[in-house]
Nucleic acid binder design. Structure first.
Lengths: 339, 339
DNA sequence: ATATTTACAACAAACGCTTGCGTTATTTCA
DNA sequence: TGAAATAACGCAAGCGTTTGTTGTAAATAT
């Protein structure tokens, strides 16, 4: 039946008016008579007319689409962030083009390329673990596509980003453990390439010194975040001469692996503190006693808002100094519910 | 510097050739001389030329975008499915426009509308828990936008879908428990509105009768999948006169709640079997002894493949009877690794 | 040397829609 | 009654690309 979608032209022909009249009628332009307006709208309705967005986008050079590139949707941090992004995007009449890099720098590059050819109006990016070059993003700037990074941000100047400050949350976490009486606190940290690893370390150190305790670097061990890596780290922890009685882990997965291992070697007395990623971890029998919450939904919202603002900002007229949004969302220590 | 993106026209002007020549040169058309080709390509490179997809899509009336609407990304079934969808979409040169209904029928309707105005070439949908009317999808057909449902499919004739058959997996699960010696097996099922609940029940019944055992309907209790609902169901289970020694739960969340509750009332001896959703559940100390795997990644791939085939199929020339793809992915019982 | 093919490139239309401007009637005011 | 204001609509350009057709020179065949 309905083969090709109805066009404005067909309506015009049937009603024996010009296409411009139809267009204006549909857009409630003031210079169109009420009767013609009605006739046009009625027929449009009947014919199931839907304006061809492709044509309109093409005409305006805008797509009302924001691209989102993130490492892994299955990580609940990101799926929560996406919800935030979606919510503001829809509220502001944008749609979301989503893609996962699967923590692969190559793929990430490819995706940026794809987004570029799709001519998204802006890009929201959380970079992959393995990304070490950043030209593909510069490239976007050349095409006037604003980029806002969130959570996993590259070590660059002159970028827009939204990220959480893990330093304060970590400070709170370590401080909490100290107040609880722990004196030897271990930390299973992430790879040094991540800014987040440094922030955690800083928070740890600050908490120690704030409590007039000596900071023992050997109590912080790096880890590639895999299960094997975690077990290696745990072996170091458990064999440490200072016998840590509490451990701060890089994320919930690491916590899970670590706790599991601790239990298997009968060291269940160790207290764990982690960073909130997995909602279900609270349902476990042996779970972290506290978590540093990073508010992914809020971060997503914020980032999307900034991006869309950026998109709609009048072009930087050569003279105007470009301002960069650097939003830091404070993290917060949340004590686990007693179960 | 670079304000507006470079166009083919500018290249033409600079090189003093026609736009068509430039276009053909860039597309390696045979009727363009090698030297001009080179000149054009070189300049295009220098000017950072990127073809304006909006214009191209508009011209062809195609967007090379498939829309995906699903309930919740944070459910790992869906995030896995998305990965499958993405993979085939990219391989076949499509991009993915994603949206979550958050299990809200209203929002789902809205999203379909949005997808329609965005003129996606096709739609992949897993309907929300609360969806009960389906006209919004019919609407797509009128615009010649093919729709393929996956996993959560509506009870309609004449639709394309990919879904898993939970009946066989459930049969295997119950059968497995019976072979293991259990004689009283409970099932915490989902709401009756879901087809999946029925399939589970059917599988349960078939396994019982296949083993010449009487089927006791009171051993299957419904549940709204919340924690409270699960605890209610568990109370019924635990108070049942036949004392179930094994329980099949609707999904991993329910399993988690149930196991936790079982442990808290010291009934840790009960064996659980669930449906695989959460990868991390295997890291728990007290976890299901087996899971029914539904292969979300595979389902996603399959669904996307069908959709894109549909998109590229020559239009149904009035006479040709439309064929509907109804793909069933068999589920499979996976025994948990001994840990 | 003339006719015919070949190689290369330009012209122009088309996709659906918006919008500045021009063109009619019709009304309003002096 | 004539001039100017107003209302209602049509014309046509333009957004960036692709593509069928046409044009023109050089190369080949006769």
């Amino acid at each position: 039946m309905t083969d090709k979608p109805t066009t404005i032209k067909e309506i015009a022909k049937i009603l024996k008016v010009s296409v411009s009249t139809v267009s204006r009628a549909l857009n409630d332009h003031s210079s169109i008579g009420l009767t013609t307006k009605m006739r046009v709208k009625k027929l449009a309705e009947e014919l199931n007319y839907e304006p061809n967005q492709k044509a309109i986008q093409f005409l305006h050079g805008k797509s009302f689409v924001v691209g989102v590139i993130l490492p892994e949707l299955s990580e609940s941090f990101f799926s929560a962030a996406i919800s935030g992004i979606e919510d503001v995007a829809y509220k502001r009449n944008y749609t979301v083009l989503l893609a996962q890099s699967h923590d692969n720098a190559e793929r990430e590059k490819l995706l940026v390329e794809k987004m570029k050819t799709q001519r998204v109006d802006g890009l929201l990016v959380s970079i992959s673990k393995t990304t070490s070059t950043y030209e593909h993003f510069d490239n976007c700037r050349k095409l006037n596509i604003p980029v806002v990074f969130f959570d996993r941000i590259p070590p660059l100047k002159d970028i827009h980003y939204v990220a959480s400050n893990l330093e304060t949350g970590t400070f709170e976490a370590v401080n909490f453990l100290l107040k609880k009486g722990h004196r030897s606190i271990g930390m299973i940290n992430g790879p040094n390439t991540l800014i987040a690893s440094h922030e955690r370390k800083e928070g740890y150190i600050r908490a120690m010194t704030a409590n007039r305790l000596k900071y023992d670097p050997s109590l912080i061990v790096g880890c590639d975040l895999s299960e094997e890596g975690t077990i290696n780290a745990m072996d170091i922890m458990l064999g440490h001469r200072r016998k840590p009685t509490a451990i701060v882990t890089f994320n919930d997965y690491v916590a899970l692996f670590a706790m599991h291992y601790a239990k298997s070697v009968n060291r269940q007395e160790i207290d764990f503190v982690s960073y909130a990623n997995l909602p279900i971890i609270n349902y476990m029998d042996y779970s972290p006693i506290a978590s540093v919450e990073q508010f992914p939904y809020k971060q997503g919202k914020k980032a999307a808002d900034i991006l869309i603002d950026l998109i709609n900002k009048p072009k930087n007229d050569s003279g105007t100094e470009q301002a960069y949004f650097n939003i830091v969302v404070e993290s917060e220590l949340i004590l686990s519910k007693q179960r």
